[in-house]
Each structure stands twice: as C-alpha cells, then as structure tokens.
C-alpha cells in the first residue's frame, strides 16, 4: 500500500493541478492577511472558503484521478499486490497531496504573519483539522462514486451532484423542515441533521469557536448543552472520523468484488 501511495502521491505532486491548488491557498492566505492584517478575521473568511471549496475540489480531484489512472490501476491489478492496497494507496495518494497543498498553502502565509504569537492558533488548527477531514471524506466519497460507475460522465455528474447536495440542497431541506415543524421542539432534530452532513458538521464545529456568542445565545438549552461542551466537540470529531471511515470501508469492500 505504501508503495502505491508513494507513486500516486509523487505522480500527483508533479501535476499542474496540485500546484494550482497550492498556489490558490497560498495567495488566498496572503491576500486575506494582507487586506486586514488580522489573523482571526482571516480565519473566519477562510472558513467560508474551506467549507465550500475543499469538498468541491476533493470530489472533482478524486473522481478525475480515479478515471485518469484507470490504466495504472489495471497495470497494478495484474501485479502481485493486494487489491485493497491498490485502491487505498491511490486514495491516500490523492487525499495526501490535497492535504499537503491545503496545509502548506494556508500554513505558510499564516505562520509568516505570526500565527504562533496569535490567539487564533487554536481556531486556525481547528480549521486545518476540519479541512483535512473534509478532504479525506470527499475524496473517499468520490472514489466510491467512481468505482461504482464505469461511465466517466455519469460518475462526474454524480460527484458534482453529491457536492451540490451536501453543500446547498441539504441545508435547504433542513431549513424547510425546521420552518414547517417550528411548532415542535427541534433541538434534537437540528443536532441530528447537522451530524448527518459532514459539511454542516464541520461548519458547526468551527462556528462554535468563532460565532459562539450568537449560536449559544439564541437557541435552547439542548444546543448549548451539546455543542458548548467537550462532549459535543468529541462527538462531532468522532462523527467526522466515521464519515471518513465508512466510505473508505465501502471502497475496500467494493474493490474486492469489482471486475476489471
């Protein structure tokens, strides 16, 4: 697995898109800091970008890599290598290179603007942790889509649809159900609905650190009791881990059964 990871990773590190992605974050980080020179402000803006963009880029990158490396995969399948190693290696290669672009691209500007002296270091670390989770989750999901769809265009369509659903449509349905059922106590439902979407979950996690005053001030005790505590933080992180593990697990199962 490690060898496949190594080849995928270095193959991707040489690709133009990795640089584009890296430079995008690098420029974004510097511009944000240059414009308001305030680390904690930049973290908020970055959150908006990360929550939306990381899943999109990870999904598209993942699905493109899978289809583009089909030949490579077939070459590997005839070699004495475990199937799960091939797919896990490729998956780790893609998510690894995306993670590297993200962490370095954002890390360099922030560190050079004195992150370690700023109080925002915790917020920033959380942002990176959440960004990393989203990268892993959405790369895994896109691999799942790709392995289940031989047709490239169909697979690509599903992937974009998945992103659209998680990033926008889900929240629309969520909002509608909250308004329709506003007569009922909705705290528990809201928490559950947040948990079932990794993007919402990540957003809530970061919001807890950034806009906590607004969030806790308005809603009921259940919310405060859950999200405001370490238990909430732990549960959310645990769920993010589950969100990463389940698609990876399915990827392995699916790869064992697939014909090439």
């Amino acid at each position: 697995m490690f060898k496949i990871f190594k080849y995928s990773f270095f193959d991707l590190m040489r690709s133009r898109w990795s640089y584009v992605y890296f430079l995008f974050y690098l420029i974004l980080g510097f511009v944000l800091l240059f414009l308001n020179n305030d680390v904690s402000k930049a973290v908020i803006t970055l959150m908006n970008v990360i929550i939306i963009l990381v899943p999109l880029i990870s999904t598209i990158f993942g699905i493109m890599y899978y289809y583009n490396s089909k030949e490579f995969t077939e070459l590997l399948l005839a070699q004495p290598i475990r199937r799960s190693s091939i797919f896990m290696g490729q998956f780790l290669g893609v998510s690894g290179s995306l993670l590297l672009s993200l962490v370095l691209g954002l890390g360099i500007p922030f560190v050079s603007y004195g992150l370690f002296k700023s109080t925002a270091i915790f917020d920033f670390s959380l942002l990176l942790v959440v960004g990393s989770f989203l990268t892993i989750i959405f790369t895994a999901l896109s691999f799942n889509i790709a392995i289940s769809n031989e047709n490239k265009i169909k697979g690509f369509g599903y992937a974009v649809l998945l992103w659209l659903f998680m990033a926008v449509i889900y929240d629309g349905l969520f909002l509608m159900s909250l308004i329709v059922f506003e007569e009922y106590p909705l705290d528990t439902f809201s928490i559950a609905a947040t948990m079932f979407n990794p993007i919402d979950l990540s957003r809530t996690l970061i919001l807890l650190k950034l806009d906590i005053s607004a969030l806790l001030g308005y809603t009921g005790a259940v919310f405060k009791g859950f999200f405001g505590t370490n238990l909430g933080l732990m549960t959310s992180l645990l769920l993010l881990i589950l969100w990463a593990l389940i698609p990876i697990w399915r990827l392995i199962i699916k790869s064992q059964k697939k014909d090439f």
Binding site: D11, R14, S15, K70, E71, E74, L75, A78, P80
Partner: peptide, 16 residues
C-alpha cells in the same frame, strides 16, 4: 501473481 508474467492486451500506461 508473483508466479505469473502477464502481457495485457492494450498497452495503456499511466501517461505522465
């Protein structure tokens, strides 16, 4: 598969 030498039909290799 260590005991097999395989020549695939269409030589598609990772391009870059």
């Amino acid at each position: 598969r260590e005991r097999i030498q395989y020549l695939p039909q269409i030589a598609n290799f990772p391009g870059n």
